Simulated assay, not measured.
Amino acid sequence: GLYKSTGQSKPQVMTLQGQMQMQQTSIAAKVPGRIAQILVTEGNKVEVGQQLIEMDSPEINAKIAQARAGKDMAQSQLDKAENGARPQEIAQAKAAWQANKAASDLAQNTYQRVDRLYEEGLMARQKRDEAYAQYLATQDQTEAARLQYDLALEGARSEDKSAATA
């Protein structure tokens, strides 16, 4: 109305006195922590989604480090499962199997000798039974050692690999 009443084509600059009210908004973080850096100052114009502060949260940082360590541990388990037994472990299992095989062969020969002596009446039945029991025990030990060697050669089961991958 003031513009029209003057009848001029260009508006004049007028200085008016008055009060202006600002809207104040409280902000809060979703996680506990300390303010590390304030990125805006009073009077700055801010846009929607603009970062106002940087937070430093030791608790969150510790949880992130813990999660990364867990991931690294799982990765090492997967690598171990993928790579299988080390060559030294395979050689050790093979050596144990061969040692047990030699002991089993010796126990078999001993039993056969004792059995012949028993048949000729020169050895007690108790000694023959003891030699036979020793022979059977060494056969079982040899089989167990062979299975350990086979496991070392085969490596991790597919289920173990899947669990490590997960």
Rank of each mutant, 00 (worst) to 15 (best):
S158Q: 14
N109S: 14
L147F: 05
Y118K: 07
L122V: 14
R116T: 11
D140P: 00
A131W: 01
E130L: 12
S158H: 07
G155Y: 03
T110P: 00
R113P: 08
A107H: 01
Q112P: 00
A131K: 02
D140T: 10
A156K: 04
Y132V: 01
D160W: 07
Q108I: 06
R125W: 02
E130Y: 03
E143T: 10
E120F: 02
Q112C: 03
Q141K: 10
Y111K: 05
L147M: 14
Y135Q: 04
K127A: 15
R128N: 06
S158C: 03
L122W: 08
E143P: 00
E159Q: 11
T138W: 05
T138H: 05
A133C: 02
A137W: 01
Y118E: 03
Q126R: 15
Q112G: 03
A144E: 09
A145C: 11
Y132F: 09
A145E: 01
Q108C: 00
E120Q: 15
Y135M: 12
E130I: 10
T138L: 04
V114L: 07
N109Q: 15
L122G: 10
Y135S: 01
L136V: 04
R157D: 09
A156L: 05
Y149N: 03
A124W: 07
Y118C: 02
D160I: 06
D140Q: 09
A137D: 07
S158G: 02
L147Q: 14
A124K: 12
K127M: 13
L117P: 03
R116S: 13
Y149D: 06
Y135T: 00
S158R: 11
R128P: 00
S158I: 10
D150S: 11
V114W: 05
T110N: 12
T110G: 08
L136R: 05
E120S: 14
E119S: 15
T142Q: 07
E130N: 11
D129C: 11
A107T: 03
T142F: 01
Q148K: 08
D129G: 09
K127Y: 02
G155R: 04
R125P: 00
R146E: 09
E119A: 15
E143N: 07
G155V: 09
